[in-house]
Simulated assay, not measured.
Amino acid sequence: MSTDYQQAREALGLRLRELRLGAAGGRLTGTQLATRLGWPHSKVYKLEGGRQTAAPEDLTAWAAAVGQPDVAEELLARLRGFESHIRSWRRQLASGHRPVQDVWNIEVDRSQTIYAWEESVIPGMLQTADYARAIFLRYADLYGSVRDTEEAVRTRILRQQWLHQGGRRFHALIWEAALHALICSPSVLAAQLDRLAGMVGMDTVELGIVPLGASLRIPTANGFWVLDDRLVIAEDWHAEIWLDDADSVATYMRVWTTLSQSAVYGADAQALITRAQRSVNPRA
């Protein structure tokens, strides 16, 4: 977790403690407040200590329980401020995958140059509809989220129009393992590899593949995208991390550049795709 995020969470916790101690009608102990809220007392202390991130409904309930409902908007504003960097999947996917894709499309449309690193899947900008569908269904199962799969697929595919606009450039790096990962059926993967092979040499796409046997200067770690020089979007299992400070953007670009030094391009990349095609369909 980023230092800035944790500091903001701790600052919110201190404000919550201040409100508890200054409750209308007299100071409340943590146990008394927990009883009013119907929570385990440990939740009160975790929120105040910055060890748990409050949900919006937690903050609204806290403000009411201490007799100061008018401060709820202030607390929610504090939460929005630091959650703009750490966007939990639980909250993002509350309405399904389509809204998340809509937000991505807005940011992609604003960008001229995108750098992407994916170690386990084909990047969304290069996915077939069937492959994207398989990915969304797997994540819907994992998070128990709304199954708006077809809407999410259409929105992701719509984003790919960006690749056909002049002046745009997509620099994609993929670990070879992603070419073999059966996150979908073999037939869907075969079609996805055909699509990927067709991207090699496209004037708006630079496709690099890091071979499994390549010497790596750093671990492959998680996937991330750098949009122009203004925004990094990185994925973890609990959240998407959005970073827009210059130091973070520069760090992720150094990571991308370092990984790219182990990649192959052009005919060599095509050979790795062909090897994966033969693996998924030995008769090819």
Rank of each mutant, 00 (worst) to 15 (best):
I183D: 14
D229A: 10
E73C: 03
A221I: 14
A214P: 13
T220K: 05
A190P: 14
M202V: 11
Y252N: 02
Q127V: 07
L137P: 13
D141C: 06
R275I: 08
R91K: 07
D194E: 14
R98D: 02
Q270N: 10
A23Q: 00
A11F: 07
G166H: 13
L207F: 07
V232K: 03
G167H: 03
V249A: 07
W225A: 13
E240Y: 12
A61D: 04
P282Q: 00
V200T: 02
H238S: 11
S248E: 10
E151P: 04
P219M: 03
I174G: 02
L137Q: 15
G213R: 02
Q101K: 05
H238M: 10
A152F: 01
L142C: 14
R254W: 01
S260C: 04
P186K: 06
L12E: 11
E74H: 10
L126W: 05
Q68I: 00
S215N: 14
E10Q: 15
T155V: 06
V205I: 10
V205T: 04
Q7P: 08
L158S: 15
D70L: 07
V249S: 01
A197K: 14
R87G: 07
S88F: 09
A263C: 01
A263E: 03
G266M: 04
D70M: 07
E119I: 12
R275K: 15
S185E: 12
R168E: 08
G81L: 12
A284M: 01
V66R: 03
V232T: 11
R217Q: 11
A191K: 14
E176M: 00
R133G: 11
H85N: 14
A134V: 04
A132Y: 01
N222Q: 14
G213M: 07
S42N: 15
T155Y: 07
V264P: 01
H97W: 05
S84G: 11
D102I: 12
T204H: 09
L196G: 13
S95V: 11
P56M: 09
A140H: 00
G67D: 04
D141P: 01
T274A: 06
L196H: 10
R36F: 09
N105P: 03
Q32K: 06
L93W: 01
T258Q: 00
H180E: 09
E73H: 00
E118N: 03
R168T: 12
G201Y: 04
A269I: 04
V66M: 02
S84A: 10
T35D: 11
A129C: 12
A11Q: 08
L207A: 10
R80F: 00
L59V: 06
